[in-house]
Design a protein around this nucleic acid. Sequence first.
DNA 1: TTGAAAGCGCTAACAA
DNA 2: TTGTTAGCGCTTTCAA
Lengths: 343, 343
Amino acid sequence: MATLKDVARLAEVDPSTVSRVLRGDPSQAVRPATRDRIVAAAGTLRYRPNALARGLRTRRTDTIGLIIPSLENVGFTEVTHGIQAAAADAGKLVVVVEAEALMSADETAAEEAYWRLVTDGRVDGLIVAFATVDDHIVTQLHERGTPLVLVNRRTAGIHGSVVVDDERGSDFAVRHLAALGHTRIGYVGIDADTDTARRRQHGYREAMSSAGLAVHEAWLTVGTPTIAGGRSATRTLLGHALDQRPTGLFVASLLGAIGVLAELRAADVGVPSDTSVIAFNDHELAEYLDPPLTTVRMPNFRMGQEAVRLLLEAIDGEDGRDVMIDDRPQVIARRSTGPTDRV
Amino acid sequence: MATLKDVARLAEVDPSTVSRVLRGDPSQAVRPATRDRIVAAAGTLRYRPNALARGLRTRRTDTIGLIIPSLENVGFTEVTHGIQAAAADAGKLVVVVEAEALMSADETAAEEAYWRLVTDGRVDGLIVAFATVDDHIVTQLHERGTPLVLVNRRTAGIHGSVVVDDERGSDFAVRHLAALGHTRIGYVGIDADTDTARRRQHGYREAMSSAGLAVHEAWLTVGTPTIAGGRSATRTLLGHALDQRPTGLFVASLLGAIGVLAELRAADVGVPSDTSVIAFNDHELAEYLDPPLTTVRMPNFRMGQEAVRLLLEAIDGEDGRDVMIDDRPQVIARRSTGPTDRV
DNA sequence: TTGAAAGCGCTAACAA
DNA sequence: TTGTTAGCGCTTTCAA
């Protein structure tokens, strides 16, 4: 592998000159003839600067770290995709650390790994996606001065986050149901004590009240944002007498909604004839569920892109900003919602 | 951020001694008292070796590169998950490059990016997952001496690959259908000119013949392994007269099968009453499709793990091996397959 | 058992 | 316009 020295020797100039030319250093003028010789030499030697040496010198790795609960969760793919796209555009590499993969190892291994990324100088900054990592780790990283962006969550005292408008998403969901004539609208929420979960629920309550609809606490369940969570929430709901049950259900997570659908089907409850279901967050496969699931599509791809932008700003020393992506949520009306047959 | 020097100063020894102790260098004996002082100093300073400096010196980054078409495709998640898990176990970091994200930028950008990863010395080796990257790039990388492992594909002249037993998977699928009484079994294949696609198709043909079943070329379609691909293959199949059509369909990709299901439903063809469908590769969500999709579950997680193992071997200078994961495929019988009503 | 010294490949301040 | 020099933080021979 050719080094700067090799190129310098071939072009008969000093390595520092090669460096200047190849980096396109604007502060220095170079005689065209020299530049040409250097460029030619680099070409024939197929020279590529060593990223490690450069990083050691400049304290920039042009690499960002992404910490994410699991790549396997369909709910995260859009965000990671946006992150990848924006990183590629900016010429940055992404080191992905799946928190789940670490957890399996041992308790403190996860924490170790976060430190390793940053403290070992492998990345210029970190994107922490979703609420998996303990607040105190995030806070510590932040206090150490690590450029940091939180995705889809906020943590007190840390500026540098990007979220979608959860409340507005909830609002759209409730409105969709209300427009269909539903008045008894339940909520299957997320039990995690996170900002995002709170905002979705708050949006639900607000939307209900501004639609002049009453919220009954019995219609409000929380659980994990998983298929299992959706199923068990549904079982709870089905425990109530028929006329005590909501006719429309807003589920705060896509996987949760899949569980709701499954449990409803298992209990022979018609969707949407008996109960309508709408989910927060869309996915290509929602179309192919049984029945096709109505969703509120949020601008998650953009959230990922924006996270990269914010992080690059932070790396450049700018102050952290808290951004809310305000692209209009989109209700993708499929077959899981409709007017109810019930009174 | 504390450096080796800082630790040395505090412990009142030479940096080289600190290095030896902290690396646990076995070739050198160290007086316990010295070791203790060093360890203590490192602790109080929260010292962490700088990965760039170390990598520059040792020519090891402890990072592996993963090139993958798209993280968004549910078909790939299991493999990447296996890779992440194995990498975490081995204490390696993973740089993920989504080929798709690069493509968007410009034509040659993708090629550039592969070079950057390796030639810039950012990673010790590369896992190339699936058949997206051009053969000639892979070949070039290989010729440059880059430690390389191919996942779910093989390329002539390159040793270092891991695949699942595609033929056996196909065999299981066909047998499942045959055991249900199907004799007219069609195949929705993958049109890419890849080893994997060929092996799946070959497995289908072999299984048919060993079951004493005839293959009609009209039952054999190929397309992209996507929902759209599955839909269009199905339209072709539905173009034939009813009694010329297969009663059972083996679809070589999960997404393809979802498309097949969708198109069949759109055409009011009963599944499985009229046509049974079984897919290659399983996914959690297969359970929730309409109808729940019968699949052949392949050991993809293990394939990912094994890829990391092979790569680490290659990085350590061992010869590349071509491995086939021979864990038994598993037919997950759901509701898309059953006896046929047709004659 | 420990220290001295060189150098991995690059950049950047300074000098010429 | 180009070269000299020092050094980023670490490892590793060699010497003591």
